[in-house]
Design a protein around this nucleic acid. Structure first.
Lengths: 228, 228
DNA sequence: CGAGCGATTGAAAAGACTCAACCACCGTGG
DNA sequence: CCACGGTGGTTGAGTCTTTTCAATCGCTCG
């Protein structure tokens, strides 16, 4: 199994034009960008960047999902965020210039565009509305994260699971939630065994159905009610 | 006991010039700002804004500490952040225009400048380096928050307390940590009783000394070692 | 077919929460 | 000046939640 990813510059179906962040660009801007980005395919479980790496650019997700996580000293991961198609990953660290404090890797087959640091910074520098979009985006995430912190700090594992399932239901938007029990446990911040037991409870209560690696939400309202 | 705060526009010792965010301004810009801001004194436990309020401007802290927190349905608070002199509070929600998702109130006597929404937005609009500073600031907080989430989600209450004490030691910078046990518990995300018992343990291990409403860190290194 | 990973279950132990009571300090009004 | 009430701090005991460890099962891939 080769670890290399296939590179190609011309991608017809590139999300570039779809991404909310890049909506603000003119066709000309986008054409310039076209020449400076490089698209690649990634298999499942490939690392985009790791804690401590120096940021070299940003990643625009065309297809697939990326987990952003930190790694504890005992190797336990904590998933902080799951990025989906249209999102830009890895631009926070670029402004500070500091090494990454988190890692990012693919959770499924992905198609991703890479834009080098200087190209991206030029782009940002020449376009104030992009700056504004970035600020809005960051503010939104900061707010989301406040809610996440409150939930993690105060709630039982049961409620935390309900909360995370609601987040994932949004992220997977229509599709079934598709991740290993271990990843899910690393998102909720609990032991895999505890997670499995709670999923079983939820299943028995008719809240969801489980499949191999997949979870089907049946009663969104009741889950939401548990959380708030 | 009057609940009104004393308003005054001229404040000689205003932190405006000290704040890292406002370093980028010229004296002229600052002079303009001088006319549009209004400074006030606040007593302990006064609310700056509450969850659901519409943002009307930003708050620049001259003196004192502000807690930013969410309130659960059962009234339990979760402190997300403690802002200190020099920080600007409440500007995230301004860009999105959404109502506040958090509340802010004073933890001690405070002196605070208020800058109205339109004044602030004009300022930001006319000054790209301020935008850049804001982005850097937001990125930094986002990174901090990632670490906080990981800690809250994965660690025992004991380690979470150590982590929060380290944060507070930075925030109180030299001074003793000064907050009620309840607030501290609401920061760590635990019951007040549990917090008190752990503080007692830490005290017996020589890590800190407790006073009324105050905590004196004795062995920073060992606490830091518990966390990482 | 065998290895290995992911999922699952059971049982015991540890951790944290709840409830209930009590103490200590502080400012107020009589 | 002192009793009073209130807030904040502390302690104990019992209970529930969650973790840990150990073992088993099923499926997929080489």
């Amino acid at each position: 199994m080769s670890n290399k990813s296939h590179k190609y510059n011309i991608c017809e179906s590139c999300m570039l034009r779809e991404s909310s962040l890049f909506k603000v660009f003119s066709e000309d801007d986008l054409h310039d960008l076209e020449t400076s980005k490089s698209c690649s395919s990634f298999k499942r479980n490939q690392l985009l960047f790791g804690e401590g790496n120096i940021p070299r650019g940003v990643y625009l997700i065309n297809q697939g999902k990326i987990k952003i996580y930190t790694t504890g000293e005992e190797g336990k991961e904590q998933i902080i965020h799951i990025a989906k198609a249209g999102e830009i990953v890895g631009f926070r660290a670029m402004f500070s210039g500091d090494p990454y404090k988190v890692s990012a890797s693919t959770m499924e087959e992905c198609r991703i565009c890479f834009i080098g640091k200087s190209d991206f910074l030029n782009l940002v520098d020449s376009n104030k509305s992009l700056l504004n979009s970035l600020i809005r985006e960051l503010s939104k995430e900061l707010t989301e994260r406040a809610g996440f912190i409150a939930n993690m700090a105060q709630s039982s594992v049961r409620v935390r699971l309900a909360y995370v399932l609601m987040m994932l239901d949004d992220i997977y938007d229509g599709e079934m939630i598709n991740m290993t029990r271990e990843d899910l446990a690393n998102f909720v911040g609990t032991a895999t065994e505890t997670l499995i037991r709670l999923l079983k409870d939820f299943k028995e209560e008719g809240l969801l159905r489980t499949h191999i690696r997949k979870i089907e939400i049946l009663d969104r309202d009741r889950l939401l009610h548990m959380v708030k």
